[in-house]
C-alpha cells in the first residue's frame, strides 16, 4: 500500500509491520469484520421481528396459532444451538432445492433422496451451477443470516412473551375500562410499556448474539475466524513476500480484544438505554428517577 513496500525483503521492524498489515489479504481480513457487523445489523432487527410475531402468536386467542407459537419457542430453546446452526443450514438448503425441484421439474420421476445422495434437477439448484462465485457466497451468507434470525427470533420471542406478561395487569384493565378493544389496548398500552421489561432480556440476547457471530465460520462463511486461521498460519518465503512463523495465537488475541471492546461498548450503551426507557415508568427504577428529579 505504501510506496516503500515494493520490496518487502529489505524492510524490518515497524516499517515491515506496516507493510505486512496493509497487504491485500489483510484488507480482506479487515473487511470480514464488516461481514460480522453486517450480520449483526441484519440479524438483530429480523430476530426481533420474528420474536415479536412469535410472542404475539404465543399469546393469541386462536388456539392453533398459540400452539404453533409455543412449540416453536420450546423446540428452538430445547435443542443445543450449535447443532441447530449446523442442522438448519443444510435443512434450509435442501428444503429450498426440494421445493424448486417440485415446481420446476415436474416431469422428473426419480426420487430426490437416492441412498446417501440428494439429487435435484439442474434447474432447481440453488444458486444455479452456472452462477458466479459471489452469488454462491452471498447465498451462503443469507442462509446463515436466516438461521441466526430463526434461532435468535425464538429466544427473543421468549423474552417478549415474558415482557408482555410483566406489564401490570392494572394498566390493561384501565385500558379496557376506557373502552378500548383488545387490539387497541395491545397496541397502545402494552407494546409501548413492555420494552422496559424486555430490555434486560433483549440486552442479554444481544450480548449472546455478538458472541455467537464466530459460529459463522462453521456455516462456511469466510468470516474473521476463517481469515485469522488462514493468515496466522506459518508462511515460508516461497509463497509470500512476508514470511513469518505461526502467528495464529496473535490473530486470535486480536479477535478476543475486538469482541471484548464490542461487548463493553454494548454494555455501556444498553445501560444508557435502560435509563432512558425507565423514565416515567411505573417501576421502582422509574420511581427512583422521579424522586431524584423532584
Amino acid at each position: 500500500m505504501f510506496s516503500y513496500c515494493t520490496d518487502p525483503s529489505t524492510l524490518s521492524g515497524l516499517t515491515w509491520l506496516s507493510c505486512y498489515l496493509t497487504t491485500g489479504k489483510h484488507m480482506a481480513f479487515y473487511l470480514s469484520f464488516g461481514t460480522v457487523l453486517l450480520l449483526l445489523a441484519i440479524t438483530a432487527p429480523t430476530a426481533l421481528l420474528f420474536g415479536y410475531f412469535g410472542a404475539t402468536a404465543a399469546r393469541s386467542q386462536i388456539a392453533p396459532l398459540r400452539w404453533i407459537g409455543k412449540t416453536c419457542i420450546a423446540i428452538v430453546r430445547g435443542v443445543p444451538d450449535i447443532a441447530f446452526f449446523l442442522f438448519f443450514v443444510i435443512a434450509l438448503d435442501q428444503a429450498i432445492e426440494w421445493t424448486r425441484h417440485k415446481l420446476l421439474c415436474p416431469e422428473w420421476t426419480e426420487p430426490v433422496r437416492q441412498g446417501n445422495d440428494f439429487v435435484v434437477c439442474a434447474a432447481a439448484k440453488m444458486p444455479l451451477g452456472t452462477a458466479p462465485q459471489w452469488v454462491h457466497e452471498t447465498y451462503g451468507f443469507f442462509l446463515a443470516i436466516f438461521t441466526f434470525a430463526i434461532v435468535f427470533g425464538a429466544f427473543a420471542a421468549n423474552v417478549l412473551f415474558g415482557a408482555m406478561r410483566a406489564v401490570p395487569r392494572a394498566q390493561m384493565e384501565t385500558a379496557e375500562a376506557y373502552g378500548m378493544t383488545r387490539k387497541q389496548a395491545f397496541r397502545r398500552i402494552m407494546v409501548p410499556q413492555m420494552w422496559v421489561y424486555a430490555l434486560p432480556g433483549l440486552g442479554n440476547l444481544w450480548m449472546v448474539l455478538i458472541k455467537a457471530t464466530p459460529l459463522l465460520f462453521l456455516l462456511g462463511v469466510e468470516d474473521i475466524v476463517y481469515w485469522a486461521r488462514e493468515m496466522g498460519g506459518s508462511k515460508t518465503a516461497k509463497f509470500t513476500d512476508y514470511p513469518h512463523g505461526d502467528w495464529r495465537m496473535w490473530y486470535f488475541l486480536a479477535l478476543l480484544v475486538f469482541y471484548l471492546a464490542f461487548t463493553r461498548v454494548s454494555e455501556i450503551f444498553l445501560e444508557r438505554t435502560m435509563k432512558r426507557l425507565t423514565k416515567g415508568q411505573a417501576t421502582t427504577g422509574g420511581e427512583a428517577q422521579r424522586k431524584v428529579a423532584a
Binding site: P214, L255, L256
Partner: peptide, 16 residues
C-alpha cells in the same frame, strides 16, 4: 466478554 469459540481457538494456539 468474549466468545467461547474464540477462546477455544486462542487457547489451542497459545498451548501450541
Amino acid at each position: 466478554g468474549s466468545p467461547l469459540f474464540v477462546q477455544f481457538f486462542f487457547g489451542y494456539f497459545l498451548f501450541l
